[in-house]
Amino acid sequence: MKALNLKPVIVTHSNKLDNAYELVDDFPYEHNGQVRWVPKFFQYDGASIPILAYHIVGTPFNPRYMKAALVHDWLYHTHEIERAAADALFYSMLCESGVGDTKAKLMRFAVELFGKWYWHNDDADQAYKKELKELIRQDGRNPCVYGL
C-alpha cells in the first residue's frame, strides 16, 4: 500500500474540524479489484474518535488509522460506493494497517452506528467539493477521475 504524503493545514475548510491534513499527492486505494483515487488537495481530519474513547481506541491521527480514515472520509463526501461498502472498506483497511481485529471491529461498529449523521453532504460539504473540483481543474486534472 502506498504511503500517504500529507501536510498539516493551518486554516482548514469550514466543513472540517480545527485539525486537518491535506494530501500532497493523489492516494490510490482498491475496491472490488478496481483502483480508485483520493485527489491531491483533499483535507481530512483523521479518524472520528470521541475524546472520551482515546484511551480505548487511540487518537484520530494514529498512523495505523490514517489511510483508512482518509478513504472513508473521501467516500462519505463522494458517495462513489454505498455507505455499507465504505464502512466495510474502512474495516478492511484498518486490518491491513495492523489494527487488531477487536479494535477494528469496534471502530467499524462506531462508523456503522454514527456514520448516518455524516453521510449526508450539507451545504459546507457541497461548497468544499466545489472548491476541490476547481483546485483539481487548476492543477490540470479532471475531477471526474475522482468521482467529483
Rank of each mutant, 00 (worst) to 15 (best):
V35D: 01
N121V: 03
E112D: 15
G98E: 04
H31C: 01
A86N: 08
L70V: 04
V71I: 13
G140M: 04
C95I: 14
D73M: 09
D25G: 04
W119Q: 08
P39W: 06
E96Y: 01
I81G: 09
L135G: 01
K16L: 11
F90R: 03
V38W: 02
H55Y: 13
A110G: 11
T102Y: 07
V99C: 11
A124L: 05
P8M: 05
Y54T: 07
F109L: 14
R108L: 14
R137Q: 04
A69G: 11
N121E: 06
P143R: 02
D18K: 14
A69K: 12
H120V: 04
E96P: 00
T12G: 11
T102M: 12
W74D: 09
T78C: 08
V35L: 07
D45I: 03
V11I: 15
D73R: 03
R137A: 01
A20W: 05
L75S: 02
W74F: 12
L70M: 11
L94M: 10
F109I: 08
L89M: 06
Y21N: 05
D26T: 00
V35F: 06
A104Y: 05
L135T: 00
G100F: 08
G33H: 07
N5S: 13
L52I: 13
L23T: 04
K130Y: 03
Y146V: 02
M1C: 07
R141L: 10
M93C: 09
N62D: 13
K116I: 12
L148G: 04
